[in-house]
């Protein structure tokens, strides 16, 4: 079975971003970029399935600007066999990404697609669900445990009330939550090896997908900043302030 794993280039989630001066977007100039942390978990899971003899090949797909090759190389260094970049000029809506991925699936015929549960830039949590819908496949979102059992998957999901286990028929789309695994660090030899792995760059226009945005961003603004308050000297003072000044206890 082949696994398709999706990789997104995002700003480093530990870096505080700034809104552009004209309030039209987030200013990503000179911001450190990284692989979306949930995509890293997706790559790790795919590679583990290959190491366990369940998957035969791991193909990493990224849809984004030319620089996304860096994140694909990270995926290759972690153990993916080859990469595909669908090169776009700027950001794309999730539904468009799902439609482009659908075309890749038609060509690659994977038995399983693994994605992160959300990207830390747009915070949507939607591409995997949309892709499953377009394919007419089962979806297992927010996965914390994945077991493949013949033609189906036993999947444990992180839900608000605890854990939910579902059985999915294959092929399927799975999106990863934090506790699915702990991604490995790519070793230096593997980083070197990754440079020689195949990475296919395809122009977005070749896919025949309508790229017209459906959502218009009217404004991007900075939220009201919270001001730090006072540092207190004792627990007694804290309890007093919460009771009398704020009346919250």
């Amino acid at each position: 079975m082949k696994i398709l794993v999706m990789v997104k280039r995002v700003s480093d989630p530990n870096v505080m971003i700034r809104v552009s001066a004209d309030n039209s977007s987030v200013d990503l100039n000179n911001v450190k970029m990284a692989i979306n942390p949930f995509c890293e978990i997706a790559v790790e899971e795919a590679v583990r399935l290959k190491e366990a003899g369940i998957a035969s090949e791991v193909v990493a797909l990224s849809i984004g600007t030319s620089q996304s090759q860096e994140q694909l190389r990270t995926a290759l260094a972690m153990g993916a066999d080859r990469g595909i970049l669908i090169e776009s000029e700027g950001p794309l809506e999730s539904l468009t990404v799902a439609k482009l991925t659908q075309k890749v699936i038609a060509e690659e015929q994977p038995g399983l697609v693994i994605l992160g549960k959300q990207s830390t830039d747009t915070d949507n949590s939607q591409t995997g669900q949309m892709l499953a819908s377009l394919m007419g496949w089962a979806q297992g979102t927010f996965a914390s445990k994945l077991e493949i059992d013949g033609e189906s998957i036993n999947l444990t999901r992180e839900v608000d009330s605890g854990l939910q286990t579902v059985r999915l028929s294959m092929p399927a789309v799975v999106t990863c939550d934090l506790r699915l695994n702990e991604p490995r660090f790519a070793s230096l030899p593997n980083i070197m090896k990754a440079k020689r792995k195949p990475l296919d760059i395809k122009p977005i226009a070749d896919f025949g997908v309508d790229l017209t945005p459906r959502i218009k961003t009217l404004m991007v603004e900075t939220p009201n900043e919270r001001q730090g308050g006072e540092v207190l000297s004792s627990v007694a003072e804290l309890v007093e302030k919460l009771k009398t000044e704020k009346g919250v206890i």
């Binding site: 987030v26 991007v220 603004e221």
Partner: peptide, 11 residues
């Protein structure tokens, strides 16, 4: 978006 560090108005 971006962990609550920006708010977008979308239509």
């Amino acid at each position: 978006i971006y962990a609550g560090n920006a708010i977008e108005t979308v239509q």
